[in-house]
Simulated scan of single mutants.
Amino acid sequence: MSAVLAMRLPVEQDLAAFVQLLQRLQLPHRVTEEAGEQLLWVTDEAVAEQVRSLYQRYPQGAELPAVPVAAGRPGFWQTLRAAPLTLVLLAATLLVALLSWGGENLAVVHWLNFMDFRVQGQYLLFVPLSDSLAAGQWWRLWSPALLHFGVLHLAMNSLWIWELGRRIEWRQGGLVLLMLVLSYSLVSNIGQYVWSGPSLFGGLSGVLYGLLGHCWIYQKLAPNPFYHLPPGVVGMMLIWLLVCMTGIFELVQLAAIANAAHVAGLLAGCGTGLLGGALARSRQ
């Protein structure tokens, strides 16, 4: 293969675990020795940048599952340990789902909804957002992302957050993932509020569409194995978004979809993916 030097390391540095990590991620490479140094070669500068980024975070290959390549995929517990922030986000979502009993316990829901409310008969009387913010309830700008209404709503969002969140955590680190999640939840919640006005809404859908857009555009600009999604995933998710926007689910009274949150999250994710991908590409 064509050779681009990714790293120079002392000959006494044990690279066995890190090389195993590169093999598991299917990053083409080879290691040679020269003048008391180990030289790690890769196919091109894009892969070299990925390898250097990996080595900064996982020099011993310990943060990602240390299993033989023949095993095919990492073990369950090792995978969990490799994505702690994603796991914390899902645990918090599950806890809120249990406390709110799938959105049915309004005594809990009213503390997490974008706008506070009180129940009067069969109606919800909403408190102006400005009053809540003046009272110091700033968490409302983000907390609706943790609310889910029903098991299916929770399960679908959790699966996608796990799939996309851990990819970003592995590639760009937990701090970047945290900033992205907070940004997408804020943008999607505000977008839904501006579009629909006072209402009851929640869920991680806006965040997951943000993560999807981030991986999608980032991968277009700076291809890497972490953000490579199976063929058709992006297209399927965009088609699903369009179907939801037709209002068919509201028409058959199956569910009320926060479409504005989805669109706002997707646009925000495409924006961060454009920025992050452009910066990564410039470094290449």
Rank of each mutant, 00 (worst) to 15 (best):
1 M>N: 03
5 L>D: 12
6 A>L: 01
9 L>D: 00
10 P>V: 00
14 D>E: 07
15 L>S: 01
28 P>F: 07
29 H>T: 00
29 H>D: 01
30 R>C: 06
36 G>T: 10
41 W>R: 01
41 W>T: 02
44 D>Y: 02
46 A>S: 14
46 A>K: 12
46 A>G: 04
50 Q>W: 13
51 V>Y: 04
54 L>V: 04
56 Q>A: 12
58 Y>F: 11
61 G>E: 00
64 L>H: 14
65 P>I: 05
69 V>R: 15
78 Q>P: 13
79 T>R: 04
80 L>C: 03
85 L>I: 11
89 L>M: 12
90 L>I: 11
91 A>D: 06
94 L>A: 13
101 W>T: 14
102 G>C: 13
104 E>L: 06
105 N>M: 04
108 V>H: 11
112 L>C: 05
123 Y>K: 11
125 L>M: 10
127 V>T: 13
128 P>W: 00
138 W>G: 13
142 W>D: 15
145 A>Y: 01
153 H>I: 02
159 L>V: 08
166 R>Y: 09
171 R>W: 14
175 L>D: 07
176 V>I: 09
179 M>F: 10
185 S>Y: 00
187 V>M: 03
189 N>H: 09
190 I>H: 03
192 Q>K: 01
192 Q>N: 12
198 P>E: 10
200 L>I: 03
200 L>T: 04
201 F>Y: 10
204 L>C: 02
205 S>R: 05
207 V>R: 07
208 L>Y: 07
211 L>S: 04
214 H>L: 14
216 W>M: 05
216 W>G: 07
216 W>K: 00
216 W>C: 08
220 K>C: 10
221 L>T: 00
229 L>Y: 08
232 G>N: 09
232 G>A: 11
235 G>Q: 12
238 L>N: 11
244 C>D: 05
248 I>S: 05
249 F>Q: 04
256 A>R: 10
258 A>Y: 15
258 A>Q: 11
261 A>P: 11
262 H>M: 01
271 G>A: 15
274 L>I: 07
274 L>E: 03
275 L>Q: 06
277 G>I: 02
278 A>E: 05
283 R>F: 13
